[in-house]
């Protein structure tokens, strides 16, 4: 096995890792603020991919506006879901099991709606950037699409971190996550903070779906595996920590890709979940684990 082959495999792992990171960051953000696990998160990833497919393939809209339309539609869907279903739940206060039941139902609803509307045939989106880039005299090659995934993910994650750490909205999100009652006493409209958080979280999943759609085919069930993997990355990195989800995503992505190289394709999930199990033994709160803050 050559060094360049290994480098390429690690690079593939990083690409995969960034897509997990985007999905996981959304899940973690949501857990950090609303203390709920969104079991329909993977389906927002799927809906994002379908919106992009609709725009680009069916609507024949050029790629960049098509992607933007996809993200906007997904964000609008999240807004609708939040206001119609999650908000009434938040109003009840301490919600126990209900978010799991709600989001599981939403997941089934979204998958079957996609099945009814778009059919069960797998759909394809052309590569957004159909070129191959070579580095180090051709020893490392990467397709433009994969490079684009890395770049877009990095930009989106950076943007997210700036929003959370540096802006007034970010302070409101963190304050609401850490002490909702007192944040509201200071004038924060915690209801809108929850809505904004849900929309950001879902849009992150949709962006991941849109970016990965050209590599994997678009189908109603594409979100299920991503959902579980994204959650695994969150738990590995520390549920509630956005940085943790990113690190967890990269670890699992690279580990999967390496296990395909050294073992076989069938082993990748085994290795990924093995890392998770070991982590739960060693440090159940995850790498960046703390009191469930953002």
């Amino acid at each position: 096995m050559s060094v360049s082959y290994l480098t390429n495999q690690i690079l593939n792992g990083i690409v995969l890792g960034f897509s997990y990171a985007l999905v996981g960051a959304g899940l973690s953000l949501l857990w950090g603020t609303l203390k709920m696990i969104n079991l329909a998160h993977g389906d927002l990833y799927m809906m994002g991919a379908y919106f992009a497919w609709l725009a680009i393939r069916v609507g024949k809209i050029p790629i960049i506006p098509g992607i933007i339309i996809g993200v906007i539609c997904a964000a609008a869907l999240c807004l609708f879901i939040q206001i119609s279903t999650v908000r009434p739940l938040v109003r009840q206060g301490d919600f126990g099991m209900s978010p799991y039941i709600l989001t599981m139902g939403l997941s089934i609803l979204l998958q079957n709606t996609a099945l009814l509307v778009y059919g069960e045939r797998y759909q394809n989106i052309p590569y957004y950037l159909d070129k191959v880039y070579k580095f180090f005299n051709g020893s490392v090659t990467i397709s433009g699409q994969r490079l684009l995934i890395i770049v877009v993910s990095l930009v989106v994650i950076l943007f997210l971190m700036i929003i959370i750490k540096r802006t007034k909205l970010g302070r409101a999100i963190r304050a609401t996550a850490q002490d909702r009652e007192f944040a509201s006493m200071l004038g924060v409209n915690t209801k809108s903070v929850y809505t904004v958080t849900y929309v950001i979280s879902g849009s992150l999943a949709a962006i991941a779906g849109i970016m990965l759609a050209p590599i994997y085919s678009v189908n109603p069930w594409m979100g299920t595996a991503v959902q579980t993997k994204g959650l695994a990355c969150c738990v590995l990195g520390g549920l509630g920590s956005v940085e943790g989800a990113i690190v967890g995503g990269l670890i699992i992505g690279i580990a999967e890709s390496l296990s395909v190289t050294f073992l076989s394709k069938e082993w990748k999930d085994v290795v990924a979940y093995l890392i998770l199990i070991v982590m739960l033994w060693v440090k159940p709160s995850g790498i960046f684990g703390k009191r469930g803050a953002v």
């Binding site: 963190r174 850490q178 002490d179």
Partner: peptide
């Protein structure tokens, strides 16, 4: 009472 600071900020 108990200050209610945001501990991780």
């Amino acid at each position: 009472e108990g200050r209610h600071l945001f501990p991780d900020m």
